[in-house]
Design a protein around this nucleic acid. Sequence first.
DNA 1: ATGAGTGCAAACCGTTTGCAATCGG
DNA 2: CCGATTGCAAACGGTTTGCACTCAT
Lengths: 144, 144
Amino acid sequence: MSERFDTLAQHFRENGHKLTQPRQAILHALLVAPKPLSPAEIQEQGQVFYADLGLVTVYRTLELMEEMGVVRTVHLADGCHGYALATPGHTHHVVCERCHAVVEIFGCELGEFLQSVAERTGYQITGHWLEIAGICANCQQMEK
Amino acid sequence: MSERFDTLAQHFRENGHKLTQPRQAILHALLVAPKPLSPAEIQEQGQVFYADLGLVTVYRTLELMEEMGVVRTVHLADGCHGYALATPGHTHHVVCERCHAVVEIFGCELGEFLQSVAERTGYQITGHWLEIAGICANCQQMEK
DNA sequence: ATGAGTGCAAACCGTTTGCAATCGG
DNA sequence: CCGATTGCAAACGGTTTGCACTCAT
């Protein structure tokens, strides 16, 4: 087993969780994955290591791992649900964590950064998508 | 009706779509919304303008509007489904549009930009979240 | 007049929950 | 041993589809 695996396994034990076969399978699946996986994909891949792995267990384990900071959620292009009128041109959003008020940021200072990303990764960049979380002026007042 | 509304209405007609009462209600709802709305919220708000507005119509109209580029989808913190192992530190992703391969970008050159956003908006910035779409080197080859 | 657009009901699919059986420390 | 963990089946909530009726042009 990889060194990475052992570190993750220890994480479980430190937090007082048992390292069962289903959980090991899920860890393995995520370790060898070249991309973010959906729960269903994790089950599928995980069954290579533990044939009886159930989808429910995948959900519960992911929840656990998220709490422990072992997995991160990656937002994919589909399945996210909020709609706002499009504004001409390229904009970004700042969303208030408290009241969900949204401010649009016009102008995008990311060009240079993206250029360097393209060079570093060999990817041809086709788009990007930034969202900023914060607390709006109003809600900052409230907290006092 | 606002000038903005008329522009949007015209968009419908130009694309050969009828501007029905339900659709008008949906436009109104989005126009007055201070934040991105879920389909259910759009229905709720839209019923202020057209009481019989059905949820199914909201879905179908949103799909239509998305094709026309009239609405943008905003990704909210919940409801997005992909998991990857967490990497220590702050990273961003570049996701390939074709094969969904993911490259992580270490280091984040957004500090300065976020600073200026904070000043411009009065928000206290608590986090941000950037995803970059592109075509990976492999898939660029494939296309030839 | 007539096809685009609508609402309803039902199908669908991913996620969550209740529960009895099982496993790991 | 004993509670944490599991899989199953059923419930659940959001989204999509089939269909007959209605409306905008």
